[in-house]
């Protein structure tokens, strides 16, 4: 993975007790996996966007997420202290070791599908980073501070498109409705803490998700109202498991493509 964002030195790790260090490693890895998988999904649009301008917009977002991913993996590797590198973490772990929520591995579908997936993620991502950048762990706060500006733009982009598709033509509305009906059930996992997250929340290292929800819900309600779309009802069959390593079938195919080169030619460099 080669990206100019890498020119910045890795932030210094602070002293945590071994168990906390392990929990923080798992949490940072979860964030990294999430951004990597979604960034990869968006990169699949490259050359296939509905118009050139949006093709570029999605590639830009993918690159932002990849830049964030690298910083997170570097910090995770540092926390783990086992000599693994960012590339080892990205390319040499099986799907069951990935900790991304199910939402981000869902296939692109049509443009409305991609926009809804992005909107649900951005709304969570932006508010999470906003809280993390004020957090007590300096390296994580540093990564969040850099990424939150990018996330603010991502949320603006996906919110605009929710409004345009919802309040657009009959066809765009029908596609948006379908995407919302399909993907809404994956949103709850983002803010449902795992045991690791709960432990870190208890230590103040991870923000309490209940504190993020009011702002997230207010933003979603505002955007959906602008889009003239009634807010989807809370679904009885919320889908979750990705943060615990239980993934949908889609992640395996995604990783097969993402990891192919390192699997086929171990240690290959450009």
């Amino acid at each position: 993975m080669d990206h100019p964002a890498d020119l910045q030195p890795a932030p210094a790790a602070i002293a945590h007790a071994p168990t906390v260090r392990q929990q923080l490693f798992e949490f940072v890895l979860q964030l990294a996996d999430t951004s990597l998988v979604l960034g990869h999904r968006l990169s699949e649009w490259c050359g296939h966007g509905p118009v050139l301008e949006q093709d570029l917009a999605m590639a830009n977002i993918a690159l932002d997420l990849l830049g964030e991913t690298r910083s997170l993996y570097q910090y995770a590797a540092q926390l783990e202290g086992q000599g693994r590198t960012e590339d080892d973490l990205a390319y040499l772990r099986p799907a069951t070791a990935y900790r991304n929520p199910l939402l981000v591995e869902q296939p692109n579908g049509d443009f409305a599908h991609t926009v809804v997936r992005q909107f649900l993620f951005d709304n969570y991502h932006y508010h999470l980073l906003l809280a993390l950048k004020e957090g007590p762990d300096a390296p994580l706060a540093g990564i969040a501070e850099k990424s939150v500006k990018e996330a603010a733009y991502h949320l603006k982009w996906s919110s605009e498109w929710i409004i345009r598709l919802g309040d657009g033509t009959a066809e765009s509305r029908q596609r948006l409705d379908k995407a919302l009906a399909t993907l809404w059930r994956y949103a709850a996992e983002l803010t449902t803490p795992t045991a690791t997250e709960t432990a870190l929340q208890g230590l103040g290292l991870v923000p309490d998700y209940a504190d993020l929800l009011p702002a997230m819900q207010a933003h979603a309600a505002h955007v959906l109202a602008e889009a003239t779309v009634p807010a989807p009802q809370v679904v009885p069959f919320a889908q979750r498991g990705g943060k615990g390593g239980q993934h949908s079938e889609h992640l395996g195919y995604l990783l097969a493509e993402l990891q192919y080169m390192q699997r086929a030619y171990p240690g290959l460099t450009w």
């Binding site: 301008e53 570029l56 917009a57 830009n60 345009r164």
Partner: peptide, 20 residues
Amino acid sequence: SLHAADATMAVQNARDVYTR
């Protein structure tokens, strides 16, 4: 130049296409 449905989208598209 670029294509966009309205001014808001044009500014955003310009950001994505021309200020990378």
